[in-house]
Design a protein around this nucleic acid. Sequence first.
DNA 1: AAGCGGCCCTGAAGGC
DNA 2: TGCCTTCAGGGCCGCT
Length: 298
Amino acid sequence: MSVIAPTYSVFVAMPELPEVETVMRGMRASLEGHRITSAVARRPDLRWPLPKNLTTILNGRRIESFRRRGKYIFMRLSGGMSMLLHLGMSGRVTLNASDDVTLHEHVTFTTEEGRRFGLIDPRRFGAIDLVPTNEEESHRFVATMGPEPLSPAFTADTLAESLAGRRSPIKAMLLDQRVVAGLGNIYVCEALFRARIHPATPAGSLTKPAIRRLVHAIRAVLTEAIAAGGSSLRDYVQPDGELGYFQHAWRVYGRAGQPCPECSKGKGKEACPGIIKIMQSGRSTFFCPRQQPEPAQS
DNA sequence: AAGCGGCCCTGAAGGC
DNA sequence: TGCCTTCAGGGCCGCT
């Protein structure tokens, strides 16, 4: 008999790559090798209709492994089937929680080994689908997705190629999952700040040094956030959920009106107006106008 | 065809 | 206190 960890839930406010990675690691630690003995779907759809035979197909299968692609989690099952999971905006996973069904807990399954998995998603922007394991990469959710930002395939050269000729603001381009996988509003803001790039810069006008800084900044912020989320998951065993601790490391996101953490360090900080918020394509963008000046017009 | 706005959904937060 | 409006955003859809 295996040791069952204390009850906990994995909560993330806005699941981007690091949060999805954290959730996937929690699922792997709790569920890998287990056999599903019951599955329940309490509504027919999330963002899209659930597979009609979802619970029937899950039932009896062994959970063999997990992997992440962008913001999607693949749970590979015995018999050559994979379940895709997207947490949308408000997705939360409970593992080994109580038998009580939580509000907005749309899907639940339990394992022979005594684990209970629950997917809670109030806004229902999340998704679940099934796909044969050998066809994972051609599933419509991931087929057109760009490179994993932490993989060797994501380089200044490949990013420059994607951005060439594009007049959209770099902020919008980085949110496009076809350009690079897994980034959302928070980490795009953070990466642009670290790379000292104005979010409205036309993507195709970025210089190669700027693109190199951007690739480095994206890798750094994601790596740090995964480390923080991981430690949060490892240490965190309360039932009611809490943000991973990386939220405290945000330098610009959600900090409108506050001093810029970079400008505050150096001379001339009185010339910095602090972090400001603008709207781009209906999304909020946070940046420092002094660290990230508007690009020179040419 | 690139680019952009609208839409889905619920809960939190702010205004009066 | 309570009701109302606004905002949050991932990703798809449709219009230009």
